[in-house]
Design a binder for these strands. Structure first.
Lengths: 233, 233
DNA sequence: ACCTGAACACCGTTCAAGT
DNA sequence: ACCTGAACACCGTTCAAGT
């Protein structure tokens, strides 16, 4: 479990702890939310649910967080702290972006709810930017000028996040295309869609699809880099 | 307004309309949801809210839809019916995919909530597959074998949807990176992130970023196609 | 200093009663 | 055939009272 970030200022030392003793803490609450998210990744978390789990009144949580939004923000940051990136010394841009992509993939697979928090509830965290800065670094080092750098970085981000996103949403609602659906389609379309369905039904499909997406992303980058370097010379 | 799909079977003609006269209809309810989505795209729609708008009791809606999920499913299909794709005669694969990508972009920009419904609530509609089949068609015509076709199609979908998705989530929560956030970063990172922020703050940024993403996607496809064709010869 | 219960304004949904 | 109100089990949040 990672440390809990952005704690309330600690109690002034020397003070004689007046008043009622606490039954919980920011740490416990955040840990409880993480546990709930790991147990059922598809649902969202309610204050009531957390309180029930800890064994306190829902209102007690408001002593530690201003509201549900601040709590989720803290959880988001906390989960991002667990993001780990192993990088060999002297890795080139391909190795850096590959390592980042796989780490991202692993991380969001582990906490599917996190992409929801990041993408939909506006909690784009500074922690995420920090961990994803490796992409910027890799492309800056290889010679992309500032004006070329920004769109390239944004493209890599949206491309890899798009791959993660489509995997997760596909995984959470997979039996999407029924035989009846197929039967209602006309022929050139039906054959293609059946092939698509069979392909995605295969075991290990997600890994190979992610790998494919990553390779196309790297291909695209190689083109951009080659063009930039030939211009610079 | 598009026709409303999947209506209840019409009342048997000749029957003398016994019982209480209806105050609303599937069409009106769906139209009301669409109107609410167009007014405030970021929030989700409640049964209570719809009923208030139409001027009926919330429970009346349950005469027309089994539950909230079925209502949203119908709305999703309905919005997809409005998807329009203009395609010149004899367009090549680039033109087809470009037209599809721009139509997709336009459509989700108009109904930002739709991507949420499609991606997150598991309502991947047959209508979406039908409209997106143009990608499959374009790549099949250009000579990709079935085994190469499926991953390529999925890649194009996730790549373009990723671009749309990141635009929408960025747009809905833009002042993400404050000066204080920047101040807390260390130097190589801070410079890059400031450049990124300034880039995304520029007017017309979204359009040029989308265009950039589309071009990289086409570049990647060109590589795949060239490889497949050289293998076939 | 922290916890609690009552209260408010919301949800989706079931059921029985009305027209 | 369709609508309604009461009721249930949920939400997040404010406020005043307790320890």
């Amino acid at each position: 479990m990672a440390d809990v970030v952005s704690l309330k200022p600690a109690r002034k030392s020397g003070a004689r702890s007046p008043g009622r003793p606490p039954k919980t803490s920011r740490q416990e609450i955040v840990a409880c939310v993480v546990a709930i998210l790991e147990k059922n990744p598809q649902q969202s978390v309610s204050i009531t649910q957390i309180a029930r789990e800890i064994g306190i009144a829902p209102m007690a949580i408001y002593n530690y967080f201003a509201n549900r939004d601040e709590l989720l923000q803290t959880v988001t940051q906390n989960l991002m702290e667990e993001f780990r990136l192993e990088l060999a010394e002297g890795a080139d841009w391909r190795a850096k972006i590959t390592a980042w992509a796989h780490a991202t993939h692993r991380h969001f697979r582990r906490y599917p709810h996190l992409i929801h928090l990041l993408t939909w509830e506006g909690h784009t965290s500074v922690a995420w930017l920090k961990h994803s800065a490796i992409v910027t670094e890799a492309l800056a080092d290889v010679g992309l000028a500032p004006r070329e750098l920004a769109p390239a970085v944004l493209w890599v981000w949206s491309s890899i996040m798009g791959a993660v996103n489509s995997e997760l949403s596909w995984a959470s609602s997979h039996p999407t295309l029924s035989d009846e659906d197929l039967a209602r389609m006309e022929e050139p379309l039906r054959g293609h869609m059946r092939a698509l369905r069979d392909f995605t039904a295969g075991g290990g499909h997600f890994d190979s699809a992610f790998q494919y997406n990553l390779e196309r992303t790297l291909d695209g980058l190689a083109g951009v880099i080659a063009k930039a370097q030939s211009k610079a010379v």
